[in-house]
Structures are given as C-alpha cells and as structure tokens.
Write a protein that binds this DNA or RNA. Structure first.
Lengths: 106, 106
DNA sequence: ATGATATGCAGCTATTTGACTGCAAATATA
DNA sequence: TATATTTGCAGTCAAATAGCTGCATATCAT
C-alpha cells in the first residue's frame, strides 16, 4: 500500500470513487462510511487513508471520532488534465452543429 | 495485464496519460509513440492496447502501419464523474466572492 | 525473392494492490 | 474503575500490474 499519493491512482478504485461521491453530501466518520460497504472496516479505512494522503480528503477530530470531508479543489487536478480533451470534443460537437445548420438552411 | 477496461484505471498510469496527451495533437503509430519513451516498444504497445480496450483510442490501418487517435468523447466519462465536485468548488469560490464583496461595501 | 520494418501476442518476473485478521491506543459510558 | 466503542497500524496473502524478451505475421523496399 505505502506510497500512493497520486490523485489519478486514488480515483482508479471504484470503492474510493464511491467514498468521494458519498462525501459530497456531508462529512462522515470512517465507521459511517464503512457501514455502506461490504468490505471490512479496516479495508475501508485504508482507502480513506489513501484518499487523505493525496489530499482529496481533509479531517477534523471530535472526541474519538474523526470526520472526513472532501477537498474538492484537489479534484481540479483531474479537471485540469481533462481540459485539453474537452476542447477537442467541444470542437467536434461544434463542427457537427455547423453541419446540421448547413443542412437545415438548404 | 489482461482485463482492464475501465477508463479510470486507464488514466491511472502516467505513461498512458502521456500517450493520451501526445495524441491530442495528431494520430500516431505505436512506433512513433514509443519513440518518445524509454520503455520498450512492446511495453508501450501494451499501454496502447489498454487505452484502446476501454475505447479511449480508435485506430485505422495504413498498410502495415496503424494510426491511433483519441476518442475524446470517451473522456467525458471522467468529466461526468468530476462534475458534481466541480459544482462544490464553484460554490466555495462564489461564497468567497460574496464575502469579499461584503467587505468591499463596508 | 530477400531482407528490413512495423506491429501484435505469449510468457516470465518483480512489485504493487486490495482484501483480510489481530492488536493497541484513545475516548466514551455504565 | 471497568467495559464498550472508534479508530489506526502491522502483518499476511492472492491477484493484478507493468516491465522485459522472444517470436510470428504482415507489409514495404531492394
């Protein structure tokens, strides 16, 4: 497990993506998060650690409980990677629009 | 190697991300792509296969050469995953704007 | 026809991953 | 104080990953 501090590695796992999505609504404790999965609590805890290591999650203590919450800005790294591709598919769609318009004007 | 047809798994590898970025400019043959890396041609070829398997790449033949090109629309799957998070970080930034405006109006 | 080039596929190997269990520490509750 | 709850950490293990080499096939050039 050890060193995996890469955002792209982090979101490669479907369980971790589910955790991230789950946290869009509210901050949750590891126990509460794990309750939603069939895997063991420790397994989910490791996934949380990985997400926290690459700063996709932040946390704060409340007694013995730890609340994990999203650090949505970190997701921008992924968005930034996609951006150039988005430009391409937008272009393709615009070209399609243009063709459709030309057809319409006939 | 075998079964990895998931877009998120595909972009987890930095070499594969580099290949994708490389192909934003133009379609390239496996040989041309591999020339940009230190890894062996066969290794790069496997990465290309993985990208093609999950439909991030398309290809067409030209004699014995095979040109691989982006299927940018497939990248939308990733964009769609990020969308909800984007909404959150936009909200945060808007809230910040609002606070700054309130300070300005005093 | 012969040799060179471009490519994919099969097989091997070290490392990484994701799951599990057990245990220890810290905090809450009775 | 004794017990229960919440959490993290260490260790184990099977499967997956990413790299390599060797080889077969198809096409181009001489």
């Amino acid at each position: 497990m050890e060193v995996r501090r890469d955002v792209f590695q982090a979101i490669a796992d479907p369980t971790r993506r589910a955790i991230l999505t789950m946290l869009t609504l509210q901050a949750l404790t590891p126990g509460a998060i794990a309750a939603n999965f069939n895997s063991s609590r420790q397994t989910i805890s490791k996934h949380i650690q990985i997400l926290a290591e690459c700063e996709l999650l932040r946390h704060h203590y409340s007694g013995r409980e730890i609340y994990y919450q999203l650090n949505p800005v970190k997701m921008k790294e992924i968005a930034d990677f996609i951006e150039p591709f988005k430009a391409i598919w937008d272009t393709r769609l615009n070209q399609l629009d243009e063709i459709l318009n030309q057809l319409k004007n006939k």
